[in-house]
């Protein structure tokens, strides 16, 4: 039998309908997991194994390879995806909390409504007022390259949930994730609604609540840079308005 080692966890628990043995207010619960020594398991795998110990531990996951964006959570104080975070990189006890600033539904599951509402506001789809061509709308490789670093977003919310401006005004500030998508369509040469898109964002909140703290960029598990996209939106607005 392989040599085992013990990994310690401290996990945020909140079970609003909990029975008499468990509080129905949030608390931190300690767990331990035996893993083969030197194993480089992903945090999500560890959570799934912990769920075998206590089946009430709740979290979202699907793809388990950093593609679906379901398992964004706060890991040792930093937002990230459990499925692509190695436990060997983490200081113990590994402290896991739900995404900060979002209402908690249960344990690590948060309510993403406001996040999606902000995403919806930027109308994240191509708008083109010209009659559609017979086949597809073509784009030069250079123009297509302008969308690199923008289209890869998986809407995991790690960025918006680490943004203080989003914590304070989640109903009015679009947040880094939504703004990255806003710029993805502003930058798309096939989109003809650029001026209208920019006008919809020029109030004091939607874009301008960003204070350039760059928390978003430092946590994005896909290595994207919302701060830069927000700067580009400002630049486009200036060009349009000056």
């Amino acid at each position: 039998m392989a040599e085992m080692e013990t990994i310690k966890f401290s996990i945020y628990r909140y079970q609003p309908e909990a029975g008499s043995d468990k509080p129905n207010r949030p608390y931190m619960e300690d767990f331990q997991l035996e893993v083969p020594k030197g194993s480089d398991m992903m945090l999500l795998t560890a959570l799934i194994q912990l769920k075998e110990q206590d089946e009430t531990i709740s979290f979202r996951r699907a793809c388990r390879e950093g593609v679906c964006g379901s398992d964004g959570m706060n890991i040792n104080g930093k937002n990230g995806l459990a499925c692509i975070t190695h436990i060997s990189e983490l200081k113990q006890p590994i402290v896991i909390r739900p995404l900060p600033g979002f209402p908690v539904v249960r344990d690590l599951i948060v309510d993403m409504d406001q996040f999606y509402q902000q995403y919806e506001k930027v109308e994240p789809y191509l708008k083109n007022h010209q009659p559609p061509p017979g086949t597809e709308r073509l784009q030069s490789p250079e123009d297509r390259a302008k969308l690199d670093g923008l289209y890869e977003c998986i809407l995991c919310a790690c960025c918006s949930s680490s943004c203080p401006s989003f914590w304070w005004n989640p109903d009015k500030f679009i947040g880094p994730a939504g703004l990255l998508q806003a710029y993805r369509f502003i930058a798309d040469t096939r989109d003809t609604a650029k001026a209208e898109r920019l006008r919809n964002l020029d109030d004091p909140y939607s874009v301008f609540r960003c204070r350039g703290i760059m928390n978003c960029t430092s946590v994005c598990p896909k290595g994207l840079n919302p701060t830069k996209a927000i700067g580009e939106i400002r630049k486009e607005m200036l060009k349009e308005e000056l």
């Binding site: 964002l201 020029d202 109030d203 004091p204 909140y205 874009v207 301008f208 400002r234 308005e241």
Partner: peptide, 18 residues
């Protein structure tokens, strides 16, 4: 669109430039 009645210009871009 979200404005603020008591913001200086009620326009984010203008506030930002000022």
């Amino acid at each position: 669109m979200v404005a603020g009645v008591l913001s200086l210009t009620r326009n984010g871009l203008r506030d930002w430039i000022l």
